[in-house]
Design a protein around this nucleic acid. Structure first.
Lengths: 203, 203
DNA sequence: AATTTTGTTAACCAAATGGTTAAACCATAT
DNA sequence: ATATGGTTTAACCATTTGGTTAACAAAATT
């Protein structure tokens, strides 16, 4: 059971590394802890990934590539702004409830190492605002929504959706909520947030 | 010049520690680096603060105590909801532009160690939502603002104000902005954000 | 002026940490 | 069965890191 050529050792490592890196960050993570969680010898980490840095990058890229398509929903599909916001909000919040460490991990590590995002930008799937901008300006011209800079609207959408997860401990403390209450609050936000945004911009 | 009883050595350490901790976090910070930045011997850090943990807590408490009063503006003064939102938004964004590392530092370290906030909660000045809730519900009853849960409104205000700073590298990348453009965007948000919120809730 | 207290430094220490190595293991092709 | 080549392990290594110590210098106290 042990010495079989385990095709999935590499994946077990990645899964363990994901767990440790996402909850403790690059600096807080320990190679030994990752090995323990994966149930293998520490040398294997280096055998498959060479170094802590490279293992980390593998985890980070995976995380980022999971988030990017979510954003593209808001940017590149063909429905109206109102539809987009509704869809994105419910989808994104559901998505994050399944991957609670993701946004904080990505944001934290990008702040630690801002040049990192340059590599991401080269990716074909990297979110691009052009279409969204055009659409916002059109709907403004048509009188469907009130004037607003597309960039600011985009930031607002991101903020309202992502922040409550990034700042979870802070929010729990201010609201005086236990985990269940917090979760309920996030559930409610699936409609709350889109209503809030649409109320603000709809004519 | 060297062996004078420098009354401010302790503060030099705290200032250096603030810089290093806020940009690298607890795990990424090195005692030697803090000593170097303070221009003193590493042993002094321990002489004045005993351990890395205690030095970190001194920095963290200072940071938190700087942020709390900002929030109390929105919660405990006597102006209308609309006034409060306007004041808070301009004040808070100005404040953060002067202390750019603050929000991310606090959020990051609270996520790393959520029990930490329990100590904060004991503090008399810890933000309390009660008054704000009452006021929101009154203005709803009077028909000044549309129905909304006070907690959700509070989260929205926080999100719209804080998130753009926490996620700076992400936003710069999506918007394709250099530092100057980013700064301009944040300046604009001083009015943008309050308009956005008020548009959404005002009857 | 002598002595005690406080501040400061260089040198040191033990533990932790990322990484390496040499040997063992094992499935498979020969 | 045996050689082969990827896989795995235990032991090891060099460096980093938080923390300590002993000696010394400058004030403060007597």
């Amino acid at each position: 059971m042990k010495k079989t050529k385990d095709e999935n050792t590499e994946e077990q490592i990645l899964e363990a590394a994901k767990n440790i890196f996402q909850s403790k960050g690059m600096d807080g993570a320990r190679m030994q802890e990752i090995a323990d969680k994966a149930g293998i010898n520490k040398a294997m980490l280096h055998y498959y990934y060479r170094s802590k840095q490279l293992l980390f990058e593998a985890v980070f890229n995976n995380a980022f590539l999971l988030l990017a398509p979510q954003l593209n929903t808001v940017l590149n599909d063909d429905s109206s702004i109102e539809e987009k916001i509704k869809n994105f909000t419910t989808n994104y919040i559901s998505f994050i409830l399944k991957h609670p460490y993701l946004p904080n991990f990505v944001i934290q590590e990008l702040n630690r190492n801002p040049e990192f995002i340059l590599k991401m930008k080269e990716n074909k799937e990297f979110p691009n605002l052009e279409k969204f901008k055009k659409q916002v300006n059109e709907e403004i011209k048509k009188g469907i929504i009130k004037p607003i800079a597309a960039e600011q609207l985009f930031i607002n959408i991101m903020a309202l959706n992502i922040f409550p997860f990034v700042a979870k401990p802070l929010i729990k403390a201010f609201i005086n909520a236990d985990d269940e209450t917090y979760l309920q609050l996030m559930e409610n936000r699936k409609t709350e947030v889109s209503n809030f945004i649409i109320n603000s911009i709809k004519h």
